[in-house]
Design a protein around this nucleic acid. Sequence first.
DNA 1: GCTTGACCTTCCCATGATGGGAAGCTCCAT
DNA 2: ATGGAGCTTCCCATCATGGGAAGGTCAAGC
Lengths: 143, 143
Amino acid sequence: MNQGMTIGQAAKSSAVSAKMIRHYESIGLLPKAQRTEAGYRLYDDSDVHTLRFIQRARSLGFPLETIRTLLALWRNRRRSSAQVKELSLRHVAELERKIAAMQAMVRTLKHLAHNCHGDDRPECPILDDLAFSNQKSEVRSQN
Amino acid sequence: MNQGMTIGQAAKSSAVSAKMIRHYESIGLLPKAQRTEAGYRLYDDSDVHTLRFIQRARSLGFPLETIRTLLALWRNRRRSSAQVKELSLRHVAELERKIAAMQAMVRTLKHLAHNCHGDDRPECPILDDLAFSNQKSEVRSQN
DNA sequence: GCTTGACCTTCCCATGATGGGAAGCTCCAT
DNA sequence: ATGGAGCTTCCCATCATGGGAAGGTCAAGC
């Protein structure tokens, strides 16, 4: 399966679905694939290498637009590692921002749930919070 | 502004954009608003209360479909607090799942960035990881 | 040679929550 | 009466991904 595999084989080799490979091509993240006479896309090891790069970057949460830049840097022998590091640390900051936001939600929810009996009765501090969130309460001061 | 405010006023009172209020109505999260003869939507304090409930639930990260259920429970005098608590704790679990995934990304990225000089030279462990993620490395064993 | 099934193609639609913006109508103050 | 703010509906975009239809291709087995 070295030279000239179909999209299905490239998908298996790279852990990127055929659907996504086509999509990446359509948005110009990948160059247009070669085609057989019948119109089937053909991929070689170099293409699979690129796909794995994208797959790994996605698994680290990089958005496709950032991956576009990372790919360009990867291919550019005159890149500076500072650019790559900068992109990565910006991404880390973004992840940490989202993590912090979700942790705040978790903290509040756990607090509310802790005070909720969770039995057959209707009284529920969680609903009370949702219903009166505009008013002051100890719970809300958590955020 | 007690009875019969327009969507713009309801939006300000609830911190839910007019756009979203219309959207919530369109997906049946809110009942169809009353209308003036000219077709303008009209809202009262009760509607604003519901909107604030939704806004608060959204700020805690609940998806709209869960909020639909929470609203029904809120209105149901015969609810059990156990149902509410259950929904909340499921949501907490989901949040924690996402947090853990992002934390793993952050850990890996920080490790890679730590080993990257971040200077004018092209050598970059971050790109190396992305390019060879299919092979074994110390870094990858973090995940 | 022909059928069958797996694989490929393109195209459209859906997700989830939100916003932008156009075209056109309404309301109120000047 | 005019202007501007605010309302209406409708369409499109985001972001990454998948589902599925309709139709073409290829290889294996009969």
